[in-house]
Design a protein around this nucleic acid. Sequence first.
DNA 1: GGCCAAGCTGCAATCGTTTGCACGACCGGC
DNA 2: GCCGGTCGTGCAAACGATTGCAGCTTGGCC
Lengths: 333, 333
Amino acid sequence: MAVTIRDVARAAGVSASTVSRALTVPGKVDENTRRRVLALADQLGYRPNRAARGLITGRTGNLGLLVPDLANPFFPGLVKGIQARALESDYQLFVVDTDENAAAEPELVRQLAKQVDGMLLCSPRMRPGALREAIGLVPTVLVNRALPEASSVTFADVDGAIRLVTHLAGLGHRGIGYIGGPADSWSGAQRLRGVRVGCLQESVELHELGPVPPTYDGGQACADAVLAAPVTAVIAYNDLVAIGLCQALAERSVPVPSRLSVTGFDDIPMAGMIRPSLTTVGMPLGEAGRAAVDLLLAQLADPAPRARQQRVPTTLQVRGSTGAPRPDDGTPT
Amino acid sequence: MAVTIRDVARAAGVSASTVSRALTVPGKVDENTRRRVLALADQLGYRPNRAARGLITGRTGNLGLLVPDLANPFFPGLVKGIQARALESDYQLFVVDTDENAAAEPELVRQLAKQVDGMLLCSPRMRPGALREAIGLVPTVLVNRALPEASSVTFADVDGAIRLVTHLAGLGHRGIGYIGGPADSWSGAQRLRGVRVGCLQESVELHELGPVPPTYDGGQACADAVLAAPVTAVIAYNDLVAIGLCQALAERSVPVPSRLSVTGFDDIPMAGMIRPSLTTVGMPLGEAGRAAVDLLLAQLADPAPRARQQRVPTTLQVRGSTGAPRPDDGTPT
DNA sequence: GGCCAAGCTGCAATCGTTTGCACGACCGGC
DNA sequence: GCCGGTCGTGCAAACGATTGCAGCTTGGCC
C-alpha cells in the first residue's frame, strides 16, 4: 500500500541500498543517480517508514513531553515553543498531560521513555528520588525545575522576585505579603527565596501567607487573610492566584492598588486583560521551550554529554495593579 | 541494552513465538507456561518494542492530533480529554500545533499520517478540498468541523446561539449585534446561522458587525463600531472577543450590562473570572475530546467503517454581563 | 598495457516482533 | 493398535529500513 524504498529502487533501476544512501549520506553516491533517485522518491511520494528506520538505527525521531496541566495557561506557551523547535528539527512530539497527578508521573515517563530519543519534563511534580530515576532512562532536559545532575532550563524566578520587591519598595511599601503556592513546587521555592532576599535588601517586612492551591479559587479564598495582615502590597505565587485575589477584593470593594497592590508571576495572557491589569514577572516561555529542545538535541548528538543548566531571564511587567500605598494606613473613609 | 522478547524467551526456556503469544493471544498457549512467561517478563521489565511490532502489524499504537493554537484557551480542554482517553486505550498521542497557519496544515497532516493509526483534526482551518484529501490518508475524526463524508464531533453551536438570542430577547433586547470572527471559520458560520435563526424567531433586529480577528485585541478594536450600532446587546464570535470588547467599553466608561449586554461563546475559564462575569455558551470540551477518540477507535476496529457525525450539546451560562436594556435609549445622563 | 586506488553500487545481515505452517505429543474412539 | 483430532510449541519468513563488506568499474599514472 505505502510506497517503500524498494519501489523507489525498482523505479530508479538501483538497489534499495543506493536509495537509502541517496537519501541519508549524500557523499556516498554518484551525484547523477542521487538526483534521479531523489526526484523519483519525491514523485512517488515516498516517505521512509520511521519505525523500520528506528528499528535499526535505534533512534525513533520522537521526543516526549510531560506537562502537568495544559489548561494551566503557563504551559501552552512552553509547549508551543518546544513543539515548533522539535518540528523544525524533524522530530515529532509525544505530549502527555499528567493532570497534576504527581504519583502517575513515574509510570508515564517509563512508558514514554521506550518510544522516544529524549524527554522534556516540564515542571515535574514527582519527588527528587523518582525524578533522578526518570532522567536515567533516556536523555532528558528538565524545564522549570533543576537537579544538579540533570540538564535543565529554568527561569530567573529569584531575580524576578527581587525586582518585584524592589519595585514595590520603590513605591513606598514597607510591609508586603507573599502568598505561597504548593509546598512541593520547585519554582514556588525559588520565588519565595527571591522575595525573602529582596525584602532583606530593601528592609521591607515580609509576611508569609498561604500556602494556597495555585488557582483562581486559591486566590479568592485567601482575600480575608491578606486583608487581615499588616501589608499594603502582596505578591502571589502566580498570576492565577493574584487574579483570584483581585476578584475577591473587588467584591469587597477594596481598591487595587490604592489600598493594596497585587502582583503575580508568569505574565499569563489574562494578566493584561483584567482591570486593573496585573503587575507581574514575565517568563519567556517560547524561548525557554526552544532552548530546552536545543539542549536536548545537543545532548543526543554528543556521545558523552554533560549536564548543562540554563537559566533564562525574566522581565518585570509593571501594570496597573501596583501603585503607591495610601498615605493613611487606616480604614476607608 | 533493552530487554527483548528473546531474553524473556531464554529465561523461560521457550521460544520467542511462545512469549509473543503469551502476551497477545492468551488462548494459544498453555496456561502454566503463560503465567510463567508473564511473571518473567514483568520481572525482567520487558516492554515490547512498538516500532518492531508496528513494522509487522502495520499499526503504530499512535494517534495524531492537529490543533490550531494551544494558547487559545478553547483547545487545552479538548486536548486534555483526547489525551486522557487515548492513554486509557494504550495509545500515545502526537500533538501538532499549527500556529493558526492554515497553509501549513496539509503538509503537517501528511507527515503525521505516516506515523499514526488515526488522526484527530481539531478545528482544521484548511479549505474543504484539502481537508477531503487529508481525511483520505488515514482514519480521521474531525472535531469542531464537519464534512458529510467524514466522522466528526461538533458542538451544538446553532442551538447555543439560538438560546443566547432567546435569553437576550427575554431580557427585553430588540436590537442586537453579532461580531463575526474569521470568514473561514466553520463554527463561526454555525454561530452566525444560529443567531440569524434566533433573531427571526424572536423578531429581534440583527446587526452584523465585523469580522474581527478572534482575539482579545479584535474585541477591543471593534468597541466604537459596536457603540455606533443601534443595539443594546451584542454577541461576539467567542469569549476572547467579548472580553476584549468589555475591556474597551470599561475604558470608555460604558456600563455593562446596563448600557450594553455582552456575550460570547466557549465559556473559557476567563469568562468566569472577569468583572462583570461573562454570559456565554459553554462547550463540553473534555467530553467532546473523549467522544472523538471513541469514534476514532471504533473506526479503527471496524473493517468497513461508516462516517458518523456526533453533536454534543452546549449550555447557556448566564452571568453578569447580560441584563435588561436601560429603559431610555438615549445618551448617558 | 598493466596496476592501483578511488569511487559507486549491491549483497546480505540485522533490528525486535508477529504469525502461518509444521511438528510432536497426547488422547479417545473404533 | 491405529487413526484422527487437539493442543502446545518452535521454525522461519516476513515487515522496511540501514550498513559493513566486497566487488565492480573507472581513470590516472608509469
